[in-house]
Amino acid sequence: MTTPGRKALLTVLVVLISAWVLFPIILIALASFTTRTQLYAWPRSLVPSPFSAETMRFFVQAQDVLQSLLNSLLVAAMTIVLAVLIGAPAGYALSRFRFGGKEVFRLGILGTKMFPATILAVPLAVSFINWNLYDTLLGVALVHTTLALPFAVVITTSVFVGVPFELEEAAMTLGCSRAQAFRKVAMPIALPGLAAAAIFTFVLSWNEVFAATILTLRNRTLPALVMNAVGLAGAPIDYRFAGGFFMIIPALIIIFVIRRYLLTLWGVTVR
C-alpha cells in the first residue's frame, strides 16, 4: 500500500475532496463579509476588501430574524427536553429488560426512523389548528420530537447498554431502591451519552425546514423564516448569503466539538 504512485493518488484524492467540501463554505463566508454594495457590483474581486460585518449586521437586524433565532433555540431546547425525557426511559427499558413485545417495539422504532416523517407536518397542521398548537413553538417542537424520538431511543439504548447493570445491582445491595440506584449510579455515568443524544437532537431541530415552515405563520423558526423569505418572497442575495452563513455557524461548531463521536452518532445510530 505504500508504493509512491498509490501514495500520490491518495494525497491528490484527499486534497481534492477536502477542497470540494471546504471551498463552498469559504466562499459563503467571504460573501457574508463583503459589503452589500460590493456584492451587487460588477466586476468585483473574489476576496472582499475591506472585510466588513455590514452584510451580517443587515441580516441580523432584518425583520424577525432575532426573534426567529430565539424561536429556533427555544424549539430546539423543548425538543431536546421532550426527546430525552420520553426516549431515555424507553432506551433504558430496551437495554435492561427482556420482555414480551420487545422486538415489535424495536421494529416499530426502526420503521419510524426510515419514514419520511417531515411530510406528516401537512396533516398535522389541520389537527394543530384544532388543538391550538398551530403557529406555536411547542407545536414545532412536538413535530421535531417525533423526528428525533426514534434516534433518542436508539442512542440512549446504546448508552445504557454501556453502563453495566451490575453497578445498579451493587447499589441496590448497598441499600438503594431501584429508582435510587438509577439516579445515583446509572444516570451520572450515562450523562455524557445523554448529552450526545441532546446534541444530535439539537442539530436535527435546528436544521429542520419543512415542518417548521408548514406549521408556523408568525412564530417562525430561523430556517422557516429564511425559507419563506427565499421561496415565497424572493429575498435579495445579501440576505441569502448572510442568512446561509449564519445558519451553518452553530452546526459547524457542534460538528467540530463532537468530531470524535460522529461515527457513533450518525454512522451507527442512524441505521
Binding site: P164, E166, L167, E169, A170, A171, M172, T173, L174, G175, C176, S177, R178, V185, P188, I189
Partner: peptide, 20 residues
C-alpha cells in the same frame, strides 16, 4: 425483601466499583 433490606453485602465478579 429488596436487596438493600436483607442485611447483605455483595462482591461482584466485575467488582461493580462505581466509576464516577
Amino acid at each position: 425483601h429488596p436487596p438493600g433490606k436483607r442485611g447483605i453485602g455483595m462482591v461482584f465478579q466485575s467488582y461493580a466499583v462505581f466509576p464516577h
